[in-house]
Write a protein that binds this DNA or RNA. Sequence first.
DNA 1: ACCTGAACACCGTTCAAGT
DNA 2: ACCTGAACACCGTTCAAGT
Lengths: 203, 203
Amino acid sequence: MSDITEVKRPYHHGNLKKVIVDTALSMLAENNGWQFTLREVARRAEVSHAAPYKHFPDKISLLAELALIGFDQLGAELIRALKSEGMTPIDRFFVAGKTYINFGLTNPSLYKLMFSAEASGGSSQVHLDERAMSALGVLLEVLESGQNQKVFKRGALNDQTAACWAQVHGLTMLSIDGLLYEEKVGENAIDGALKTLMEGLKA
Amino acid sequence: MSDITEVKRPYHHGNLKKVIVDTALSMLAENNGWQFTLREVARRAEVSHAAPYKHFPDKISLLAELALIGFDQLGAELIRALKSEGMTPIDRFFVAGKTYINFGLTNPSLYKLMFSAEASGGSSQVHLDERAMSALGVLLEVLESGQNQKVFKRGALNDQTAACWAQVHGLTMLSIDGLLYEEKVGENAIDGALKTLMEGLKA
DNA sequence: ACCTGAACACCGTTCAAGT
DNA sequence: ACCTGAACACCGTTCAAGT
């Protein structure tokens, strides 16, 4: 009988690591925050609660891996969004900003995990920083080429990068936390805020 | 003998609620994040682990109360910093921004708690929002009076408020997470970022 | 090489019982 | 009115033992 209905996991079903990561990602997508339990992941993956420890030394290592994946996804979305030709630096600023914020609002639990200190304790700290910076690199390139085309103020590239990153990060976080609703700060606060910052960038 | 050395907590030592809050605040000040355990708080307060439940229905109610205190402190510091006369709107913008960010960097665990969704689940959700808004109100006043003095661009007060709040919140968060260090985004990134945004506010 | 079951030291929360 | 001790249902983590 077990031959008929239970051929799913033959011996030790091989790719448990990927299954665990995918299960955790889908739990993040359920938007209950990133504080799921490792035992719940194991339960959903239909393995014993001890099994994940064969693939991750501890819980925060799994969290770090998820954060890594998040940064990669964010970076990929930014690059894709900016690929089309013929955009002015101003267009590119808004596209980058809105893509970034949209990623956060679409994946709030993952986004918060990416920036939670608990996720960066593990051994992959270095990789995490690297990938975070790759997302930052996209921003930097937008600003730099804008400067070169004399659309943005020359110099102070670092200041502009920090301002833009802080702006999109802040808007994303506040919006995730429900603090940017109309009653509080006016409708379309995100677009308006980006526009306000943009005025500070223009040459 | 117990008469001599143990007169500290006579019967039920009265103000347990305040002791619990203070203990929790001092644990936040130790900067190990806001995810302390309720049992540890009780241990330090030298009461049984069940005692806190006579004063708070659950853990997140305590967290919410701490967040509330944080918003009050932040608001008070902003008001104090802006009290002196004779500042230009531009001065006031920088003073408010740097006071805000400094509060976050001085109390990182408390600041993160204030903006963590877990803290806003309790029954004091409404109060929390109210107090958060009071801190926001300070920002709004700075911008509004700046507009009235024709130093800042007229109109779009909501956009400016959102931009400023997101900027300081983003800078605070990124800085707490150690992502604004020199190697990454240039030294003095915070000042530079505020200056960049300021350019967008000026009339 | 990969997984399981029992075990350990914790949590948050509840509740009868003590002062 | 305020606090305690034992108890319950969970965690994360470890480790001998199974396949």
